[in-house]
């Protein structure tokens, strides 16, 4: 079934972006997120980035003060997902030209668009940065014209 969710959390444990590829009602999401985030934040540099959690895998990667957490099925390739997280970060970096937490906070829609272009239905769709960003640039142009 591939990926289950994609979370972007800061060091204080606040969720910045959350995308789910399986329906969960809001309450379970909040409680699960809190638990997952706590677990991930507790990991030290010396520990590996994979965890088993309630029948699926958590794969996370830390960039400065941001944690990218992916929930994936057990048969997924952890290393590939780790690489995919890096690809998401690179793409955002290319789009925002030096991405930081504030960029994402104030352009949450764009962050979601980028993720939507890369993951659909819990599977990886596109891994070419230029092609991912292209439709979002189109939207930007439309926005500029209308404003």
């Amino acid at each position: 079934m591939g990926l289950r969710f994609f979370l972007l959390v800061n060091k204080q444990g606040q969720t910045r972006v959350a995308q789910y590829y399986q329906y969960r009602d809001v309450e379970t999401r909040v409680t699960n997120e809190a638990e997952i985030i706590r677990k991930c934040l507790a990991r030290t540099e010396k520990q590996c980035s994979f965890m088993e959690y309630r029948g699926f895998k958590l794969i996370f990667r830390r960039y400065a003060s941001l944690y990218f957490i992916v929930g994936a099925d057990n048969d997924e390739n952890e290393l590939a997902i780790l690489e995919f997280i890096h690809m998401v970060v690179e793409t955002m970096d290319q789009y925002f030209e030096g991405v930081c937490e504030l960029d994402i906070m104030f352009n949450i829609d764009k962050a979601h668009f980028i993720l939507d272009e890369m993951i659909a239905n819990g599977e990886i769709v596109e891994t070419n940065k230029t092609r991912i960003i292209a439709p979002i640039r189109v939207i930007d142009k439309v926005d500029k014209l209308s404003s």
Partner: peptide, 8 residues
């Protein structure tokens, strides 16, 4: 040296 790789 990478722990993730040892894990898998």
């Amino acid at each position: 040296p990478d722990r993730n790789i040892r894990y898998v």
